[in-house]
Each structure stands twice: as structure tokens, then as C-alpha cells.
Amino acid sequence: MKIATLIVRILLGAFMVFASITYFFNLIEPEAPTGNLLTFMTGIIASKYLLPLAKAIELIVGISLLIGKLMKVTLLALLPISINIFCIHTVTQVSEVPVAIFVLGANLFLIYSHWDSYKILFKD
């Protein structure tokens, strides 16, 4: 279990760092959104702060996952982002669903691997 946790943590951290760095430095030209995704992204971009904020959190979370520090709070900070990635891709961009499943699944797996730390949150 420890080896699987380490592998998933590094893969997810590398993915988060890669996604945020490519956004901030325009390293890869993103595919032009169409249909419902275009409508959604137009609103996100119009807010001027939401996408940079999400990408900054992804960068911080990715670095934390790669370093292995502050894991419990890092995984909780990533959870709403990974759920949102999953929801966006299952509703608007079905071609990217495997990536979304990986991000959410890896996040949930890592939370499960640290479950003893989260049990106190669910006590009465």
C-alpha cells in the first residue's frame, strides 16, 4: 500500500504541477472549447480571477504532493478542484473523462490512505 500511495502521490503531484505551469507560461496551446464547454469557459474567463486561482491552488497542491509535506490539508484542498474537474469533463467534454477519473480517483485514494487522520472530522 505504501508503494502504491507513493506512486499515486507523485503522479498526481506531477500532473497538477504540469497543468498549472502550462497554464501560467502558455507552454501548450489549449484546444479551443466548443458547445457547452465554450459557454462554461466564457463565464470562468469573464470572472478574471477564478481560473488563475484554481491553477495557483493546483500548483501549490502539486508541489506539496511531490514534496510529501502537509498531505492531509493538501488532499482536502484538492478535493473540490478534483470534483469540479470530474464534473466539468463528464458534462461538457466527454473526451477528457479518463483524465478526470484519474484526478478524482487519485485524490480519493490518497484520502483513503490517510483516513485515520480524517476520522476525527466525522465524530459527533
Score class of each variant (00 low, 15 high):
L12Q: 06
L12R: 06
G13I: 05
F15T: 15
F15G: 12
F15V: 10
F15K: 10
F15N: 14
V17K: 12
V17Q: 03
F18M: 12
A19R: 00
S20L: 05
S20F: 09
I21T: 13
I21W: 09
I21Q: 10
I21K: 05
T22L: 02
T22G: 04
T22K: 14
T22S: 12
T22H: 09
Y23K: 05
F24Q: 11
N26E: 02
N26V: 03
N26H: 10
N26M: 05
N26P: 01
L27E: 12
L27I: 13
I28M: 09
I28Y: 09
E29F: 03
E29Q: 11
E29D: 08
P30I: 02
P30F: 04
A32P: 01
P33W: 04
P33L: 04
P33C: 02
T34M: 00
G35H: 10
G35P: 10
G35T: 09
N36E: 15
N36A: 13
L37Y: 13
L37T: 11
L38F: 07
T39M: 02
T39L: 05
T39R: 05
F40P: 04
M41N: 08
M41A: 06
G43K: 03
I44W: 08
I44P: 05
I45G: 08
I45N: 00
A46H: 09
A46C: 07
S47K: 09
S47D: 15
K48E: 13
K48Y: 11
Y49C: 12
Y49T: 15
L50F: 14
L50S: 12
L50W: 10
P52R: 03
L53F: 15
A54Y: 09
A54C: 04
A54I: 14
